[in-house]
Design a protein around this nucleic acid. Structure first.
Lengths: 230, 230
DNA sequence: TGACATGTCAAACAAATGTTTGAATTATTT
DNA sequence: AAATAATTCAAACATTTGTTTGACATGTCA
């Protein structure tokens, strides 16, 4: 029911209202989450009538799906995963670019800044829209990273150490948007500007490279893993 | 039906209903978040009347604050930050214990399992209740970690490298509850059992120790250009 | 026992909010 | 220009939900 097929895109008014609704919805969804976001607030910011969401998107949830897709596409277009580093560059350089682009997407202050928050929310309460995001965006990016880490560790990409180390790299990046609240309360004076993002990218890359190049079992490939803990 | 067996002589009914409300609320808040959680559902699971929340806690938000405090206290009591490692143990050993206890709190399957999800939600939408949690629980734990990392790096605890490396350690742990959705979709076959938690703790500790002991600037103690804040 | 405090209950209230409706307005086509 | 389609608008609708209310039940203590 309520299947509103998107009509002719050559209509300036419709296209404009749709776009403004998407932008406003991105802001509001990011600020308050899906449930707390009200279509009244979205329409108010978009200078649109209360009924506009239902007219243009069907219902609130369909609007949300569009927003999620829109923000992902925009963020990846602005900061591609390897930032233009050549495919045959040394893996250390590619790792640095991967880390930096991920941080840039997270800390972006511009009109795509809600991308990070939207993704955070999806992590906790994945909606149906998350499925396609994972398969179309996240899995390809993961595989890209596995290749890089595999080169550095000198392992096949399906080795368990590649997976663990890749997680270690990514986790240090995403930490700063999942835990931004805590970071900024523990260090209220710390500004999150472009210079700081550079510094973070440097640290994460150096930290991870040092770890991977000196991991006790990294090169030795001794896979008995008897965890003599404690 | 539902015969109330006589319990403690002091204030049996009130204490019992309160406790059941707390447990049920913890479940529901963790599953659906503060806003989506309904008082009706909480009371239904607690076998309590719809008015019980307001009678015992005042309103829904006060109940939430109690739940947050309750879950924090329970989780930290079950898995203390250093798991009983002696205060004069070598820092490597303390780091391992810190990482392991953090992972245990995150992966706990028992009745305190909602602790992780509640904290995740607070990260994105911090409520007023988060203030006290940060000051009373998180800051002390952070300072504990800074000391350990400072020992390993051989730096003063307020050095910027201590902060960055501590974040690198913590981030690898909390990654697994913020991004559990993605991890389990990328690797659906991977079980998150106790053995896996051990393996993770090993990896994170080894990875971080290798990094910190081989960081290009770790031992160099080049003491210029450091933010001299607090 | 009888009075009083405490806790529980079903019902109702009040506010918020997603959605629908039908008229009014604007754009496009004939 | 007239007719038709598309879009906007204010108002109303229907549902959900946190909270309140006043009656009823239960336990305590003089």
């Amino acid at each position: 029911m309520n299947l509103k097929t998107p009509v002719a895109p050559d209509n300036p008014n419709q296209a404009e209202t749709r776009r403004q609704l998407l932008e406003a919805a991105g802001e509001v969804f990011a600020e308050t989450g899906f449930r707390d976001a009200t279509v009244r607030e979205i329409c108010r910011r978009a200078n649109a009538n209360i009924a506009a969401v239902n007219y243009h998107f069907g219902d609130k949830e369909a609007l949300y799906k569009e927003v999620l897709r829109y923000s992902q596409q925009k963020a990846l277009q602005k900061y591609p995963p390897l930032l233009g580093v050549a495919a045959d560059a040394p893996p250390e350089k590619k790792l640095r670019a991967f880390v930096h682009s991920l941080l840039l997407r997270i800390f972006d202050k511009g009109p795509t800044s809600w991308h990070g928050k939207l993704m955070s929310r999806e992590m906790i309460d994945p909606t149906a829209a998350m499925d396609s995001v994972i398969e179309e965006r996240i899995r390809p990016m993961s595989e890209q990273l596995w290749k890089i880490v595999g080169e550095i560790l000198d392992c096949p990409v399906n080795d368990e150490r590649v997976r663990l180390c890749s997680f270690s790299v990514v986790s240090q990046c995403v930490f700063y948007f999942h835990c931004r609240v805590i970071v900024s309360r523990l260090f209220p004076a710390q500004e999150m500007d472009a210079a700081y993002v550079e510094k973070l990218a440097d640290h994460i890359t150096r930290f991870s490279l040092a770890a991977m190049k000196h991991l006790p079992e990294a090169k030795a490939a001794k896979s008995q893993s008897n965890t003599t803990r404690n």
